[in-house]
Design a binder for these strands. Structure first.
Length: 275
DNA sequence: CATCAACCTGATCA
DNA sequence: ATGATCAGGTTGA
């Protein structure tokens, strides 16, 4: 399995990975996993190889996927060359849905803070100072401690989500059987899940690789690179039509390149040299 | 279907 | 130092 850890774990599709030296520390399911990139693969502890392969979607043939989206678009083609080994993850359905409900209208840093505190306050200790992402029952049982997580208006949305899952009104497992349109439609029925979150969950949890989530970054990229502008549906449709059945991979490449570009331009803009 | 203000909170900027 | 603005959106009018 060819995978580049840095772009895969560091580009914001999953929010719980932190790089400590050359080791990526995080949580996969209930495993406190540590992963390190070596010359010829991965070195890992705290989890199993099968769990790792599942999480990294080892069955995705990057060669096929990259060449498909590259053949459709020159810009993405050059990004693919610059960023080999970036993979879409397969995150646990419940966790992914809950974290993306929390990840609305906040910057990356704050999203990380919110999710960390939710795990710390409501999840279970899994060793190495890490905690699992809380189950719906964990959240409902610890509901009196949730204020300390400072989720703002996301708090009620998270509680409602936990409640409908606990009540069996929404079954994250059942959505695995659905195709992309049905999965998306079902998710959109949940309070707090709009088109962007629905597409993220479709892509990062349910493996609908044709999903093309449009966030603020992608919106900027599409305008800058392709001169396309418009509302959510228009931009998402553009992405799916242009990049095809692996539009989600193209989206991640565009997203990742925007991070690189913006961090570069910031570094050259001057004016932010503290001390 | 497009537009728009309001919404928790914490960081950044003027 | 203190107020405005913004940040990986969603909702309801």
């Amino acid at each position: 399995m060819d995978v580049a850890l840095d772009p895969t774990l560091g580009c914001g599709q999953a929010h719980r990975w932190r790089k400590n030296g050359d080791v990526w520390e995080g949580v996969i399911g209930n495993d406190a996993a540590d992963i390190r990139q070596t010359e010829d693969g991965l070195e890992f502890s705290g989890t199993s190889e099968s769990a790792l392969k599942h999480y990294f979607r080892a069955e995705d043939d990057l060669k096929v996927i990259y060449s498909d989206i590259s053949s459709r678009d020159n810009h993405v083609s050059s990004l693919a060359v610059m960023c080999p080994g970036m993979r879409i993850l397969r995150q646990p359905a419940w966790e992914c849905t809950a974290t993306y409900i929390l990840a609305t209208n906040a910057n990356v840093k704050r999203i990380g803070c919110m999710i960390d505190s939710v795990c710390r306050e409501l999840g279970r200790d899994i060793g190495k100072g890490r905690a699992s992402f809380p189950s719906p029952a964990d959240i409902l049982e610890g509901i009196d401690r949730i204020d300390s997580c400072r989720l703002g208006y996301r708090k009620d949305r998270l509680i409602m989500l936990a409640q409908i899952v606990e009540d069996g009104i929404l079954d994250p497992e059942a959505l695995k059987e659905m195709d992309y349109p049905e999965c998306r439609r079902t998710l959109l029925g949940v309070t707090g899940i709009g088109p962007k979150v629905a597409d993220c969950v479709c892509l990062f949890a349910y493996g609908h690789l044709e999903a093309f989530p449009v966030d603020a970054r992608i919106s900027r990229s599409l305008e800058k690179v392709y001169g396309v502008r418009g509302g959510y549906d228009r931009l998402a449709a553009f992405g799916r039509e242009r990049f095809g059945s692996y539009a989600g991979y193209a989206q991640e490449l565009l997203y990742h390149s925007d991070i690189i570009m913006r961090s570069r331009s910031q570094a050259h803009s001057g004016g932010e040299h503290p001390i």
